[in-house]
Design a protein around this nucleic acid. Structure first.
Length: 255
DNA sequence: ACTGGCTCCTGAGGGC
DNA sequence: TGCCCTCAGGAGCCAG
């Protein structure tokens, strides 16, 4: 828990994340206290007295709260050292993540404006999806993964949600009816809820803040199961690329 | 306004 | 054992 901790100093070992880590953090953060933490989409919001530190973990990012003198690990790019002797370390081997600063309302930061609704919010519903998808020719899977449509649905969960909703991932979204979109909304929520309960999905090296892997992988119905029997109808699971992303589906259950 | 393709990056895994 | 190749993915960016 970092709330109420006072920043003593910031060390940037490697500023080359998705966008350069703002150097102004070096002067801005020391002397400020973390007042609260929040989240919007996959952006973590560390609210300080005079602004908000926005952190995205990308694919491989980790935050660890350690003693400030603990040995640095490979890919520890930024350290926020607190006055109580602890340090919050941002580690990200792939550097797909980001660290940004918002002097005012973080929701008005250019990376956060334009984000779609949270998947568990009332705004994410069949009527909404139906309205914004009419006339669109894009396939339903990349549409579902577009953060302007809804946030939080990555590649694995998109395939899984479409399987459970019985919708072929290649269907032009404009041709998916409202009832099917309603099933999709429910599937997305069910998948995310189950995945969160299982601690996420570990494919290679994902782990939570305690270093534990996620156990949702064993509940995946289609993702990574190319050629294996569909759990519902036994037809072989197919794989294709859609929007440069591996896509898995049952050609029999999903239409 | 849409759409599809490309890009960033490192590590894992497979083939030889 | 070691090298090389391919793949993985969140999401911004850009050309058509």
């Amino acid at each position: 828990m970092v709330v109420n901790k006072m920043v003593d100093r910031v060390v940037i070992h490697n500023a080359a994340l998705r966008w350069p880590v703002p150097g102004e953090l070096l002067e801005l953060l020391p002397g400020q206290r973390v007042s609260s933490v929040g989240r919007r989409s996959k952006y973590l919001l560390f609210n300080f007295e005079r602004g908000t530190l926005i952190i995205h973990l990308g694919m491989t990012g980790h935050l660890r709260l350690t003693s400030h003198d603990a040995a640095r690990r490979k890919h520890d790019h930024v350290e926020i050292i607190f006055s109580d002797g602890t340090a919050l370390r941002y580690n990200d081997s792939r550097r797909f993540g980001a660290m940004l600063w918002a002097a005012a309302d973080p929701l008005q930061h250019r990376r956060l404006t334009g984000l779609g609704p949270e998947p568990f919010s009332p705004g994410f519903n069949a009527t909404y999806l139906h309205r914004i998808s009419r006339g669109r020719k894009v396939a339903v899977k990349p549409f579902l993964m577009d953060p302007r449509v809804v946030v939080g649905v990555g590649n694995i969960y998109a395939s899984e949600a479409l399987f459970r909703a019985g919708i072929a991932p290649t269907r032009p979204v404009g041709q998916v009816g409202k009832a099917a979109l309603g099933r999709l909304v429910k599937s997305v929520r069910d998948i995310l809820e189950a995945a969160i309960a299982a601690g996420g999905t570990t494919l290679r090296n994902f782990s939570d803040s305690q270093g534990r892997p996620g156990y949702f992988r064993q509940e995946l119905c289609v993702y990574g199961r190319t050629g294996e029997a569909c759990l519902v109808c036994s037809a072989p699971i197919k794989q294709l690329r859609l929007g440069q992303r591996s896509t898995y589906f049952c050609p029999n259950c999903q239409r």
